[in-house]
Deep mutational scan, measured.
Amino acid sequence: NKFNKELQWATWEIFNLPNLNEEQVKAFIDSLRDDPSQSANLLAEAKKLNDAQA
Score class of each variant (00 low, 15 high):
1 N>R: 03
4 N>W: 15
16 N>T: 09
39 S>I: 11
20 L>W: 01
53 Q>Y: 06
30 D>P: 00
43 L>D: 00
25 V>D: 00
40 A>L: 14
16 N>Y: 04
46 A>K: 00
12 W>Y: 09
30 D>F: 13
24 Q>G: 00
9 W>K: 10
37 S>I: 06
30 D>K: 09
32 L>P: 00
16 N>F: 04
7 L>A: 09
20 L>G: 00
27 A>W: 15
50 N>W: 01
45 E>R: 11
47 K>L: 07
51 D>Q: 13
50 N>Q: 02
19 N>G: 04
14 I>N: 01
50 N>H: 03
47 K>M: 06
5 K>Y: 07
26 K>A: 10
9 W>Q: 11
27 A>M: 14
27 A>L: 09
41 N>M: 14
47 K>R: 13
37 S>H: 06
12 W>I: 05
2 K>V: 10
10 A>P: 01
24 Q>F: 02
32 L>G: 01
36 P>N: 02
17 L>Y: 04
33 R>G: 08
4 N>L: 13
47 K>E: 04
39 S>D: 02
35 D>Y: 07
25 V>F: 03
5 K>R: 04
3 F>I: 12
30 D>R: 14
40 A>V: 13
50 N>S: 12
9 W>I: 10
23 E>I: 12
20 L>R: 00
29 I>R: 02
40 A>S: 10
30 D>L: 15
15 F>S: 11
1 N>K: 04
54 A>P: 06
4 N>H: 13
15 F>P: 02
32 L>N: 00
26 K>M: 11
1 N>G: 08
5 K>H: 08
5 K>D: 15
15 F>Q: 14
23 E>Q: 11
23 E>V: 09
42 L>W: 08
8 Q>H: 05
17 L>T: 00
32 L>S: 02
36 P>D: 03
13 E>Q: 14
53 Q>S: 05
42 L>N: 01
26 K>T: 09
12 W>P: 02
44 A>Y: 12
27 A>Y: 15
47 K>N: 05
31 S>W: 14
27 A>S: 13
45 E>W: 08
1 N>H: 03
7 L>N: 03
34 D>M: 14
1 N>Y: 01
8 Q>L: 13
29 I>P: 00
54 A>H: 07
52 A>P: 03
43 L>Y: 05
46 A>H: 00
31 S>V: 07
49 L>H: 03
6 E>F: 14
29 I>Y: 04
1 N>L: 03
29 I>V: 07
39 S>T: 13
13 E>L: 14
6 E>A: 05
9 W>M: 13
13 E>Y: 15
23 E>T: 12
53 Q>N: 06
16 N>G: 09
24 Q>E: 03
3 F>L: 12
12 W>V: 05
46 A>L: 03
11 T>Q: 08
9 W>V: 07
45 E>F: 12
28 F>K: 00
9 W>G: 04
51 D>K: 12
36 P>L: 05
12 W>T: 08
49 L>K: 04
32 L>Q: 01
10 A>N: 03
3 F>Y: 10
9 W>D: 07
45 E>I: 14
21 N>M: 07
20 L>D: 00
49 L>R: 04
1 N>T: 04
42 L>I: 15
42 L>T: 09
8 Q>K: 05
45 E>L: 11
19 N>I: 01
34 D>E: 13
12 W>E: 07
40 A>Y: 14
34 D>V: 13
7 L>I: 11
16 N>D: 03
38 Q>T: 05
17 L>E: 00
5 K>P: 11
52 A>H: 09
39 S>P: 04
43 L>F: 04
41 N>H: 13
21 N>G: 07
13 E>I: 15
29 I>K: 01
7 L>M: 06
2 K>L: 08
12 W>N: 04
27 A>R: 14
45 E>T: 12
26 K>R: 10
17 L>G: 00
40 A>E: 09
46 A>T: 00
24 Q>R: 01
3 F>H: 12
19 N>M: 05
32 L>I: 08
52 A>T: 09
17 L>A: 01
17 L>K: 00
18 P>F: 10
15 F>A: 10
51 D>I: 09
49 L>Y: 04
36 P>Y: 04
18 P>L: 09
54 A>N: 11
22 E>A: 14
48 K>P: 00
34 D>T: 11
43 L>R: 03
16 N>S: 09
17 L>H: 02
47 K>A: 05
19 N>A: 07
17 L>N: 01
25 V>S: 04
35 D>V: 05
21 N>T: 13
2 K>R: 07
36 P>I: 12
35 D>K: 12
21 N>D: 09
2 K>N: 15
10 A>H: 05
54 A>F: 09
47 K>D: 01
39 S>Y: 15
21 N>H: 07
44 A>Q: 10
54 A>M: 10
50 N>M: 01
12 W>S: 05
38 Q>E: 07
24 Q>V: 03
38 Q>W: 04
26 K>Q: 07
51 D>G: 06
50 N>K: 01
6 E>G: 03
46 A>G: 01
11 T>H: 04
25 V>Q: 08
48 K>Q: 12
3 F>W: 06
4 N>R: 04
32 L>R: 00
5 K>V: 07
29 I>Q: 03
25 V>W: 03
12 W>F: 09
41 N>I: 12
1 N>F: 01
40 A>G: 08
54 A>R: 06
20 L>V: 01
9 W>N: 08
25 V>L: 05
8 Q>E: 15
47 K>T: 05
8 Q>S: 05
34 D>N: 09
28 F>G: 00
37 S>W: 06
3 F>Q: 10
13 E>M: 12
51 D>M: 13
